[in-house]
Nucleic acid binder design. Structure first.
Length: 566
RNA sequence: GCCCCGCUAGCUCAGUGGAUAGAGCAUCUGCCUUCUAAGCAGAGGGUCAAAGGUUCGAAUCCUUUGCGGGGCACCA
């Protein structure tokens, strides 16, 4: 078929509809024709309220317009039939086209739905850059999995993605962490506000071994060394934990680097020259000083309060590091855009960062911030309800969750929810629901297909080379093909909107179609994949392959495995 | 006080301004001698938090209110 498997059929139909509208004599800008999936089976597969949309322009009744469009339109390759109903134009994918699609998808193999719409754009995605002061807990799992899945979607749609973890190493929290390790090294309790977990003591003991003489140094000299050492240990832990979830960073970028390389001072200097910095109360502040004159006022003004860059004691704030980090990303490494995944508790920081990007001379849209809501521990879980706290030792670790329910179920669990919803987490419930996690439904569909394909080639060692796909006529067979048709647009929408949760919902639909298709063979043996007729078997085998590849592709985008047997 | 997110079936949640609002789980009823029953078929279940507004058309956009969560540092 000449339709490229990567191109969404929705886009093909939209183009045809647009041409038809032009043919009716509408010039100038068109209203959005809102072609989308039709709701009921009676309405076909896609529908557009084009008649309603054009009523004003054409000064005709919507049904009349829809009828003329249906008559005029020409769908490439007979992919769909067209019907006007009221002011709507409905489209139904034809069996012939669906049959050809099955062949194309099967031939293409894994990767059906991939596209190059990203044009190779160089992107950095920074996610889950948690203070490296302890193990990841279940709250961190959300941003981690969300960030990685966004990366997978972006890669699938033709972007050049760099996964990065920003390692805080010079801020207040990590200094407290260093001081806590120092205290443990000397058999003392951590200072007020320090870290009390057992891992702190273990790290201190390891440091005694790996850093000879460290215990003889005064705290001012020992703490920075211990801090770097401890952060490295924690990063090893974090790296191992996320690896269990199939997540691998390209780079662990240390905050200290922006000072070693002079990027933070350079950024501060640039802001000072442009007049965005001012001195007050002995500190240096970032603020919208020149908003009237430089045209960036709108962006810079988006933050209406001044923020401290250098404290009155001469110590820079984390914001100073972030300024240098922005230079590293946009100027030194020249990423075209940077996507950040943050918990909603940082949402107030967004305007400040956008302002900083603008003040440094870059378009604020280059910085995209994805916020996700919190994960709260449910009452009674882990001893106490509410927000988790590393310092207070009140949390369930991500490792424990993975131990209890497995990586696939964890990823699926988080990915099912839109980032906008708060998760009330109940570990016991998560464990008991582990077995009924919808991920197994999808994986089972995949395993079944693998199994039946093996059976087919076993029973019929000499199947025809080529499949006669016109034999795929049963409604449950065509329904699988129909679901396959939707995949490219699902993947593209999820990538464009940076919304991975669209993928598991699609997977659910595809798996349902697969199970029904399979089950038809249980109802009546003539509907099995493996039948006496080798040509029929061959055609159904082709459908199995197409569905299996697509299931695997979609599961891959979620970082979930596609087992061959269950 | 200001800012952000949420409120949709018993529960957990989907739902780019379009037609009759969906899924999973739970409940109830059926279906395994056969390619995997971690499956399939069917049933019940709704004031889309509330009130106004915009629109030919609103769960969706705007305003107000209520409830829940998260922010508003010389913490990150």
């Amino acid at each position: 078929m000449s339709t490229i498997p990567g191109q969404a059929i929705r886009d093909v139909i939209t183009e045809a509809l647009t041409s038809a509208v032009r043919a009716l004599g509408v010039d100038g800008e068109l209203p959005d024709l809102e072609l989308g999936r039709a709701k009921g089976p009676d309405r076909g597969d896609y529908a557009s309220p084009a008649g309603l949309k054009l009523a004003k322009v054409l000064k005709q009744a919507p049904p009349a317009i829809a009828a003329r469009l249906a008559e005029t339109i020409s769908i490439p390759q007979g992919a769909a039939t067209v019907q006007a109903v009221g002011g709507y134009v409905n489209f139904r994918l034809t069996p012939e086209w669906l049959q050809r699609l099955v062949g194309a998808v099967s031939t293409k193999g894994p990767g059906y739905g991939a596209s190059s719409i990203g044009g190779g754009e160089r992107l950095q995605v920074e996610f889950a850059s948690i203070n490296p002061t302890g193990p990841l807990h279940i709250g961190h799992g959300r941003g981690t999995i969300l960030g990685d899945s966004i990366c997978r979607l972006l890669e699938f749609t033709g972007h050049n993605v760099h996964r990065e973890y920003y390692v805080n190493s010079d801020n207040t929290q990590t200094k407290r962490f260093g001081a806590s390790v120092y205290a443990r090294l000397h058999g003392l309790e951590p200072p007020e506000g320090g870290y009390i977990g057992e891992y702190v003591t273990e790290i201190a003991e390891a440091a005694r071994r790996d850093l000879p003489g460290i215990q003889n140094l005064p705290e001012e000299q020992a703490e920075p060394k211990l801090r770097v050492y401890a952060i490295q240990r924690v990063i090893e832990m974090i790296s191992a934990t996320v690896a269990r979830l199939n997540i691998h960073y390209d780079e662990w970028f240390w905050e200290s680097k922006v000072w070693e390389d002079g990027l933070a001072p350079a950024a501060i200097e640039r802001l000072r020259e442009s007049g965005y910095l001012k001195e007050r109360d002995g500190a240096t502040w970032f603020g919208p000083a020149l908003e009237e004159e430089d045209g960036l006022g709108e962006q810079v003004l988006s933050e209406d309060e001044d923020r401290v860059v250098i404290r009155s004691n001469g110590q820079p704030t984390y914001f100073a590091s972030d300024l240098g980090y922005l230079l590293s990303r946009f100027e030194v490494r020249k990423f075209n855009r940077v996507i950040e995944v943050w918990g909603a508790d940082h949402h107030g920081y967004v305007p400040r960062m956008k302002s900083a990007v603008a003040a440094l001379g870059y378009a604020p849209e280059k910085l995209v911030v994805i916020l996700h809501q919190m994960v709260n521990l449910k009452e009674g879980a882990a001893g106490s309800a509410g927000k988790m706290s590393k310092r207070a030792g009140r949390f369930v670790t991500l490792d424990e969750l993975i131990d209890r329910v497995g990586s696939d179920a964890v990823r699926y669990f988080y990915l099912l929810r839109s980032p906008d919803t708060t998760i009330e987490f109940d570990l016991e419930l998560a464990v008991t629901q582990g077995n009924e996690n919808p991920v197994y439904y999808a994986q089972y569909a995949h395993a079944r297909l693998v199994n039946v394909e093996a059976t087919a080639t076993e029973r019929h060692p000499q199947l025809p080379e080529k499949a006669d796909l016109s034999l795929l006529v049963q409604p449950w067979e065509l329904e699988v093909a129909r679901q396959l048709a939707f995949w490219p647009e699902i993947a593209q929408d999820a990538a464009k909107l940076l919304e991975p949760h669209r993928v598991p919902y699609y997977v659910q639909d595809l798996a349902t179609a697969v199970h029904r298709f399979y089950h038809a063979g249980n109802e009546s043996s003539e509907h099995r994949v493996v039948v006496e007729d080798v040509n029929l078997t061959r055609a159904r085998l082709e459908l199995c392959r197409a569905a299996r590849h697509t299931l695997k592709t979609a599961l891959d985008l979620m970082g979930v495995s596609a087992p061959e047997r269950m």
